[in-house]
Nucleic acid binder design. Structure first.
Lengths: 141, 141
DNA sequence: CTCTGTGCAAAGGATTTGCACTACG
DNA sequence: CGTAGTGCAAATCCTTTGCACAGAG
């Protein structure tokens, strides 16, 4: 979740023609450093510590931009504010405990026999799941 | 998405010791009838048409309750308000178009070779995905 | 230089809470 | 009957927007 993520995000921004401002650099750095699963406000605080000049609005707008580009995703995780997760390499998986709401990330993308694997590897008792696939529908290709 | 969903949800509520009030009955019926993917406000309007006495607050609170019980899930889908989806039988899958944001539901739960299958069956070009697994972590079992 | 990006403050929505009242079990 | 559930309104929280200014390319 370190430098490679940072440069990946920064490159993606520039390749799409967006400017790599100092504010965006800090935001992306802190987002990557946090490993994701932060709210916009959480991130704004982190960013503000590193770069006091960067306001909360810019964080919101940058997150929105990264979301549009498919680089991150907002998800509901318990209460209130949206949590943003990194979509490194186009996919993301995590386990959400239905009791303590703890979030356990995992990178294994073995789409077959997932649940058995999760159960044995993380000792996580899978009860249900949500699989969201993003892409282009027939009309939009 | 019909009567069986309704009775499933209603039974689940009662088994957990929650009262099956007339307001909750209508809310669950309309939620099931809509097939999910509605916002709390959307649902409040639907419910209000069928039962004018039921207020928006009750809809919010019922959705929150159903979410806690793992029967439905709030998800971000484009702008603003949370959309609620039915977690029938413990799982849910859908395709989200990155261009028009259309949502295409599918029931096939073939966890192997999913993407190829989706591509050939729905002509949906999968670009990325998010798989969320819900259950109990080691500490909470 | 020009146009995108930023910051502030204020608006706009969505969701939650407090409290008195109703009705399920 | 007693407690969980409801309705209303107001409060709260998150997010978006308008506009003048600053900085990247």
């Amino acid at each position: 979740m370190g430098d490679q993520t940072v440069s990946y995000l920064q490159n993606a921004l520039q390749e799409k023609g967006y400017r790599l401002t100092s504010a965006r650099q800090v935001i992306v750095q802190e987002l990557a450093a946090s490993g994701g699963h932060v709210t916009a406000d959480d991130l704004a605080v982190l960013v503000h510590e590193k770069a006091p000049g960067v306001g909360r609005m810019t964080v919101y707008r940058t997150l929105e931009l990264l979301s549009e580009l498919g680089l991150i995703r907002p998800v509901y995780q318990g209460t209130g504010a949206a949590h943003y997760i990194l979509m490194d390499g186009g996919h993301h998986h995590h386990l959400v405990c239905s009791v303590c709401h703890r979030v356990i990330e995992f990178d294994d993308c073995v789409l077959g026999e997932i649940e058995q694997l999760i159960c044995s590897r993380y000792r996580f008792q899978v009860q249900s799941h949500l699989l969201e696939l993003y892409g282009r529908c027939p009309d939009c290709q």
